[in-house]
Design a protein around this nucleic acid. Structure first.
Lengths: 194, 194
DNA sequence: GTCTATACGAAGATAGAC
DNA sequence: GTCTATCTTCGTATAGAC
C-alpha cells in the first residue's frame, strides 16, 4: 500500500503515474525519430523495452496511446508558444515547428483520418473537441485583434476561424505529399486577404 | 481465345474488364450505403457475393481497390459537373454532392490520412497526383476568370489554388466531426475575400 | 483467365498467471 | 501492476480447379 486513499477505488499509484508518463514521453520520441512506421503496439513496446500488453495496461488502446502523444505534444507546443501575439504569428510558429517534425505531422494526419470512421471514438472525441476549442479560441483572438485595432468587420468570426484551421490542416496534408507546397507563404496569403 | 490481340501480353479479356467494373461499381455502392465500417476485403466480398481472393484477382490490394473507387467517383463527379462555369460554383456543386454522400467523404478522408504514411504508395501517388492536377486546373481557371473580367492580380494563383483546396478538404474533415460546420458558407466567405 | 480454398504472418485485444 | 499466452481479424500469398 503506497496510497493513503482507503476507498475501494483508489486510483493510480504514484509509481504507475510516473511510469505512464515515461511511456508517453518515450513513445513520442520513438514516433518523432522513427516515423509512424513502427507504431504498432509491439513495435513501440520493443523500442522502449516493454511488452505490448504493458502498454495496454496504461492506455486502453493503441488509439488512446497515440491520441495522448498528440495531446502531450499539443500542450508542449502551447507552452512554447507562450504569449506570442497575433493570430498569424502564432500559426506560423506552429507551422515552423511542424516542418522540423514531419513524423508527428504524419501521426496527426493519420489519426485525424481514422477519427472520422465509426468505431474510433477516442480519436473522434479528441479531434472534435480540439477543433471546437481551437475555433472558439481563434475566433476570440480575432475579435480581440479587431477591437484593439479599432476596425470592425461584418464577417462571422467563427467561420473565419474554421477557415483558417481548415487551411492550415489542408496545407499540411498537401505538404506531406509534396514538399514543394509552401505552407507559410500560403498562410500569409490568407492573412493578407482577410 | 476471345481476344484478337495476338501478342504474348494480351491484356485482360472482355469478360474480365466487365467483371472488374461490376466489382468496382458494387463496392462503391456498398461503401456509400453501409459506410466504411465494412471495408475489409472480406466484408466487401461478402456484400457483393465474391470471395475476398476474387477481389484481389482484379485489384492488387485493398488500397488499390479503394483508390479506384475514389477515382471512379471523381470521374463521375466531373461528368456531372459538365461545363459549370465559375470556380466557386464548381466547388459548391461538389460540396453539395458530398454532403449527401458522407460515407464517400469518409472514405476519402480515411484514405488520404493513410496516404501520408510510408508504405502506402498506391494511395500516396493517387493523392499526390490528384492534388497536383487539381492545383494546376484550379489555377488555370482562376487565371481565365481574371483575364476574362479584365482585372489582374499580383498574387500567386498556384498558392490561391492550393489554399482553396486545403480549405475545402479541411472544412470537410471538420464537418465530418461536427455537422454544424458550414462548408458552403465558409467557402463563400473565402470567395468573398479573394 | 477466372476464381475458390486455404494458409500465413502481423496486428489489436483479452484472460489469467504471477 | 505487469507480463505471457492466446484469440480474432485483417491483408496478403499461393495452389490448383475450371
Amino acid at each position: 500500500m503506497t496510497s493513503t486513499d482507503g476507498s475501494s477505488s483508489r486510483g493510480p499509484y504514484a509509481k504507475g503515474v510516473q511510469r505512464r508518463q515515461e511511456i508517453l514521453d518515450q513513445t513520442l520520441e520513438v514516433v518523432a525519430s522513427r516515423g509512424i512506421d513502427g507504431t504498432s503496439l509491439r513495435a513501440i513496446g520493443e523500442a522502449i523495452g516493454v511488452s505490448h500488453a504493458a502498454l495496454r495496461h496504461y492506455f486502453s488502446s493503441r488509439e488512446a496511446l497515440l491520441v495522448e502523444v498528440l495531446r502531450e505534444r499539443d500542450e508542449a507546443s502551447n507552452r512554447a508558444l507562450g504569449d506570442t501575439a497575433g493570430v498569424f504569428a502564432r500559426l506560423e510558429f506552429v507551422a515552423h515547428r511542424n516542418v522540423v517534425e514531419p513524423a508527428l505531422v504524419t501521426l496527426y494526419t493519420t489519426l485525424l483520418g481514422t477519427s472520422v470512421e465509426p468505431g474510433n471514438e477516442t480519436a473522434r472525441s479528441y479531434f472534435a473537441g480540439r477543433f471546437a476549442t481551437a475555433r472558439a479560441e481563434l475566433a476570440g483572438q480575432l475579435r480581440d485583434e479587431l477591437t484593439a485595432s479599432g476596425r470592425h468587420s461584418d464577417v462571422d468570426l467563427d467561420q473565419v476561424a474554421s477557415l483558417i484551421i481548415a487551411a492550415f490542416d489542408g496545407l499540411q496534408v498537401q505538404w506531406l505529399l509534396d514538399r514543394d507546397v509552401d505552407i507559410a507563404g500560403t498562410l500569409r496569403l490568407l492573412e493578407r486577404v482577410l
